[in-house]
């Protein structure tokens, strides 16, 4: 055994031993050091948008955007993107920002985030579904459809919607925005007829708000689910199933232009 070799290995070991002890001490000191000397700054500089090849689709909204109830997990957004890919033969980049159970006031908050704004900026097509949770509130809407409550809720919703559209247009003034309207999942239950009336009114007012903005298109879905609603609903009797999402996707696809 070479004596020098032993010496060298020992020397290296001692060096690293000391280095690691130093690192350990530093870690403890750093962990318990009070005020940071270098505070991270919030940046407001939006970085340049990269890869501008192909189409950018940004989807915002609630569980419908997410695709809850679709066995394939795609939802109408996924179906639509598949269709666009097939038609245009271009690469499509999808950013799905849908959050299950989201209401209009939450979307209002989400859309003000810097990064969401950046995503909107580079979008070519923007898809929105919102309002279902405002109106139905997980089925509670069915109980108090007649009360004055609805009017208050709707008023709030419409002002949120207006804000959301303004925000979208501020970030991106040229992309087509497709706003998917509500259907009535309770149409075959008791009071289904009365509920339909509320939904129709809701949709009408939403379409009015959309019409006030350029290139924001209200896409009705009420009629798609009017006959044989149960064929198109998932087992929770609220979200669409695979077939139901296909219907919505087809309707939006027929409106696309490029």
């Amino acid at each position: 055994m070479n004596r020098n070799m032993v010496r060298m290995v020992t020397a290296i070991a001692v060096f690293f031993c000391l280095l690691w002890i130093f690192g350990l001490g530093w870690a403890v000191k750093n962990y318990y050091a009070g005020k940071p000397d270098q505070v991270p700054q919030k940046t407001n500089v939006t970085s340049k948008i990269d890869n501008k090849k192909g189409l950018n689709v940004v989807a915002l909204g609630d569980s419908l955007t997410r695709g809850t109830g679709d066995e394939t997990g795609k939802g109408y957004v996924g179906d639509l993107v598949d269709e666009i890919k097939e038609k245009t033969k271009k690469p499509v980049q999808l950013t799905n920002l849908g959050i299950i159970g989201q209401r209009s006031d939450q979307l209002k908050k989400q859309i003000q985030q810097k990064e969401v704004g950046r995503q909107l900026e580079k979008a070519d097509v923007i898809l929105v579904t919102i309002g279902g949770n405002d109106l139905f509130r997980g089925g509670q809407g069915l109980m108090d459809f007649q009360s004055k409550n609805i009017a208050v809720i709707e008023k709030k919703y419409l002002s949120n919607l207006k804000f959301i559209f303004e925000q979208i247009r501020r970030n991106n003034h040229k992309a087509n925005v497709f706003f998917v309207g509500l259907y009535n999942p309770f149409i075959e239950l008791d009071h289904g007829k009365e509920m339909s009336k509320v939904v129709r009114r809701w949709n009408y007012d939403s379409a009015e708000v959309s019409a006030a903005f350029p290139k924001i298109i209200f896409v009705p879905t009420f009629d798609l689910f009017e006959l044989k609603v149960n064929d198109y609903l998932y087992s929770d009797k609220f979200h669409p199933n695979t077939k139901g999402y296909k219907l919505i996707a087809e309707r939006v696809a027929s409106l696309l232009t490029w």
Binding site: W20, I21, G23, L24, W26, A27, P36, Q38, V39, P40
Partner: peptide, 21 residues
């Protein structure tokens, strides 16, 4: 409130210290 910005090499040296310990 106490979040600090570190260079990765400093962070790594601390990590090494903890791993060694």
């Amino acid at each position: 409130a106490n979040v600090k910005l570190l260079s990765l090499w400093k962070f790594l040296l601390m990590d090494f210290g903890l791993v060694w310990f």
